[in-house]
Design a protein around this nucleic acid. Structure first.
Length: 446
RNA sequence: GUGCCUAUGGUGUAACGGUUAGCACAGGGGUUUGUGGAGCCCCUAGUUCCGGUUCGAAUCCGGAUAGGCACCCCA
């Protein structure tokens, strides 16, 4: 029956013009915005000395399946995986980190660490699309490889914050960086709970969802997962507004190394002006990160998580290479764009035409192309109309295209070996020699 | 994977179960024919699909398909 439908589709039904579910088409106006955002981020990241790397979107499926021992569902159900013509199983990369690990492991013995590497790959996941979540999106990945100290964590978090404030001018009040460390929660469980949580995985997942529900609902769930007294302890812990408050409530945590790291990070981030906040309920990606984790959360306009990252020191173990400490983040284009749009900070495509060359008759078509070429060689973005047009139409086209100059070539100009050069902003016009008129473009009339 | 909502020209929308499915924008043509996005006239083009109820369905019902949102998950 499906066969029947598809053969019908071939013979009579026209194909749909809609893009494949969950992916986007980029018309020129969309592409202009996309590129403008990309250019801002890229140039800012490069100013921090990060070097770009890249790789194919195809990876062997094992790269994700090996890692997914604790996260099998993701590899099995949320990737695009297929068998190639040679019988190899191939996956469209769902994230960049395993690829980065592969690249780093391959040259682990010859690379000079620390390294600052970034990339801007498209990544794929097979999920039902919803607000802010598509099946393909692009993601800036910034990582510092080979530095175990907290200085790298501080730099990465500062870069994440700085992209918003310095590359796009977002106010410091428009977001906050929530910082935590999974070691604190582990230490609390060891030091202050009466018994180990019966189901830590479910407990942490519940804690991670704290923001998404009201307090009463959260408390109810917590009491299902912990003995009554432990639930109260946990709730007190999660409510603490700062690291200092946490330590005054739970003094035995002060000697925990995770806390010492966070205190160092706190000093650095404060000095660097990052709008950060300790958030004990942040347990983002607990089966992946090994140290400090952070999440950038929009607090004005949309209220939602924009992106996050953290430290993952086990990076190259998969490949049998020496472990390389690493800290990084991934910033998706969809959420960044939504954040900027809500703040009115979305950059616009800056591309417009400088010069439109208008052939007034069919005999001037090639001549118009010649003049456009001259303009291009002089550095202008120039287009020659492909069909003859009246001066009125030519001016109209030029205005629509945002061009500042119009060049007319008709019988008169051709005979006199000149062009008629019109400057739209000043509504002025002059005749100029056929050879060398393009140098007048530099000195615009006042 | 589960649930809820939606589906009208290219786009955005209007139409109580009852005239020829209306309007705006976009697109095409004309008017002008060596100069500012205009105006005016004309045109193209639509009820997602299949079935049911009804004298009569864009409208009500069932199913399919597609899209959106939420859950799940978020590497």
């Amino acid at each position: 029956m499906r066969e029947n439908e598809s053969s019908n589709a071939r013979s009579s039904q026209p194909l749909s013009v809609a893009p494949y579910r969950g992916v986007r088409d980029f018309y020129p106006e969309d592409m202009g915005v996309f590129r403008a955002v990309e250019a801002r981020v890229r140039s800012w990241i490069e100013r921090w000395g990060f070097e770009e790397y890249g790789a194919s979107l195809l990876e062997p499926a094992e790269l994700y399946e090996a890692k997914a021992a604790e996260n099998e569902e993701i590899a099995r159900e949320q990737t695009y995986t297929f068998t190639d013509r040679g019988g190899r199983r191939v996956t469209l990369r769902p994230e960049m980190t395993p690829t980065l690990a592969r690249l780093a492991a391959a040259r682990a013995k010859s690379l000079r660490f620390p390294l600052r590497w970034y990339s801007f790959p498209n990544v794929f996941r097979y999920e039902r699309p919803q607000e802010g979540r598509l099946r393909e999106h692009w993601q800036w990945n910034c990582d510092i490889l080979g530095e175990p100290g907290v200085s790298a964590d501080i730099e990465i978090i500062t870069l994440a914050s700085s992209i918003l404030t310095d590359a796009f001018g977002a106010p410091r009040e428009s977001f906050e960086v929530r910082v935590s460390h999974r070691g604190i929660l582990t230490a609390l469980e060891g030091e202050y709970l009466s018994e180990p949580p019966p189901n830590p995985t479910r407990l942490w997942a519940w804690i991670d969802r704290k923001e998404k529900m009201d307090a009463a609902q959260f408390t109810r769930g917590l009491r299902d997962l912990l003995p009554f007294d432990d639930a109260k302890v946990m709730e007190t812990f999660l409510e603490a507004g700062s690291l200092d408050e946490t330590l005054s409530l739970f003094p035995r945590l002060a000697s925990v190394s995770a806390v010492e790291l966070l205190q160092e990070a706190q000093e650095g981030l404060t000095l660097l002006g990052v709008p950060w906040r300790f958030d004990a309920s942040l347990v983002r990606g607990f089966n992946y990160y090994t140290g400090i984790v952070f999440e950038v959360f929009a607090v004005s306009g949309l209220r939602r998580s924009i992106f996050g990252g953290g430290r993952y020191d086990g990076l190259t173990a998969l490949f049998g290479a020496p472990p390389i400490p690493a800290v990084g983040f991934g910033l998706g284009d969809v959420t960044l764009t939504a954040f900027l749009k809500a703040l009115g900070l979305l950059p616009q495509s800056a591309l417009s035409l400088d010069v439109l060359v208008v052939p007034l008759g069919v005999r001037q078509l090639a001549l118009a192309q010649k003049h456009a070429l001259s303009a291009r060689k002089a550095g202008a973005r120039a287009v020659a109309l492909l069909a003859p047009a009246s001066p009125k139409e030519g001016v109209g086209e030029a205005l629509r295209a945002g061009a500042r100059w119009v060049v007319f070539v008709g019988d008169h100009e051709e005979a006199q070996r000149i062009v008629t050069l019109k400057h739209l902003p000043t509504r002025t016009q002059r005749e100029a020699p056929e050879e060398g008129w393009e140098h007048l473009l530099a000195g615009e009339p006042a």
